[in-house]
Nucleic acid binder design. Structure first.
Lengths: 243, 243
DNA sequence: GTCTATAACCGGATAGAC
DNA sequence: GTCTATCCGGTTATAGAC
């Protein structure tokens, strides 16, 4: 039940010389290698431990469960994503472009793990799992991710109405979750369908946000925002989900 | 790999006197009881077998895996849902009302299983699992479910444009999936948040469908439909997902 | 051929010694 | 921080009963 420090491994322990950190890294690397090669299910903890040159029990000393290894991967691709987005967003002003860049980059950086990304989503969908992206334990990464969407908006030419503004980053994050869900199930070559989905919907979303504040859509916007306010309670911390 | 007959157990074998059918029913009932009481994870196959008065191996004779027990439950609530919707839709003409009825009823009939519905979604989200609602194996139930949404439209006062019509049932089904995902994570008392979500969004969806064909939104509609056509290939059988 | 039971196997997870 | 030994439960193999 105490899952406070789940994301400690998200940090890149580059400079650290602690032996533990190096062992942990070895285990994680072995796990990712094996999963890429054989898939998640066929990668046993025993095999991971052996490949990393440690005992089974030792692997569990560093990672509470097999699924927690996945969360480490989650944090890993998240960092990669952030890093990759930086330069690409640099000169770009168009909201639509910025949005598309972030989403396409998300897919690009996750692509090597497509084969076993399903497992991530599998555990992600379970409300009881601390790995699920709505859980308290996932809050750090989730918040960083939502912050990225806030950055998309801020650095762009987009004008957002006052009522919508506080909700938009989280809405875009949810949209990204939907895209990822599609991607996980996408079997088209090079995930071209997901690319298409992103192209089309990012344009759509951008148009939608632009016209949302205009008179004809005012009442619709109002009811959407009303709903969001009701679902995400005063204390802004959590997403729509309670745990 | 051969998952042809997964849904055989969806039929209600009411009249059948076959001993096997009764044994199967006993196992399923025991499993659902135990899961309701202790949750999915803590319900062991050994306990299910014992409660049903059969041996462990025998339980596996009837259900290929623990997860397949869940799929039986899935088929069960699906039947319940269909049955419950019938009379409620009887006199109703309003599209908005019909939509809300179907969704609320879905929640009502699933409510007893809320505690362990997460597991359903967990396996459902895994693209590799035959239990996932997009898989070929799930096609029968999925198609029935989509057909229900077609019925909502047909029996209503709604006028749908020619371009949108063939896509609408599946779109509404996808919308329902989203609602269910929310519900799975909903911890509010009596899932009042999910109720609220349904109230608000069903109204919204209904408005949206109504105005979708109007001139100002014509280009938007066109691009959405273009996307859907691209994503759901000519052979209409499957959803957007390939397996 | 339909059904049932027993005895393994395998891999995730834990306990406790060093 | 690392190991070995062990548990536990999903799953499978297999043999026999109706």
């Amino acid at each position: 039940m105490t899952d406070e420090l789940l994301y400690a491994n998200t940090k890149t322990n580059a400079g650290t010389t602690g032996k533990g950190e190096r062992t942990r890294a070895r285990i994680l690397e072995a796990a990712l290698d094996l999963c890429r090669e054989h898939g998640y299910e066929k990668t046993t903890m025993r095999a991971v431990a052996k490949a990393a040159g440690v005992s089974l029990g030792n692997a569990y000393y560093y990672f509470r469960s097999k699924e927690h290894l996945i969360q480490a991967f989650y944090g890993q691709t998240h960092s990669d994503h952030l890093e990759a987005c930086g330069p690409l967003l640099e000169g770009e002003q168009s909201f639509r472009q910025r949005l598309a860049i972030v989403l396409q980059t998300k897919i690009d950086t996750s692509m090597p793990y497509h084969r076993f990304a399903g497992v991530l989503f599998k555990t992600a969908a379970d409300p009881a799992s601390p790995l699920n992206p709505f859980s308290d334990a996932s809050a750090p990464v989730r918040d960083e991710s939502i912050a990225l969407f806030a950055r998309i908006i801020e650095g762009s030419d987009l004008r957002v109405g006052k009522a919508l503004r506080p909700h938009l980053p989280k809405l875009l994050w949810t949209y990204q979750m939907g895209v990822i869900l599609f991607w996980v199930h996408d079997r088209s070559p090079d995930c071209s369908r997901t690319r298409l989905l992103i192209d089309t919907t990012s344009k759509l979303v951008s148009q939608l946000v632009r016209v949302a504040g205009l008179p004809p859509l005012r009442p619709v916007l109002r009811s959407v925002i009303g709903l969001l306010d009701d679902l995400a309670p005063p204390d802004d911390k959590a997403s729509g989900t309670r745990r």
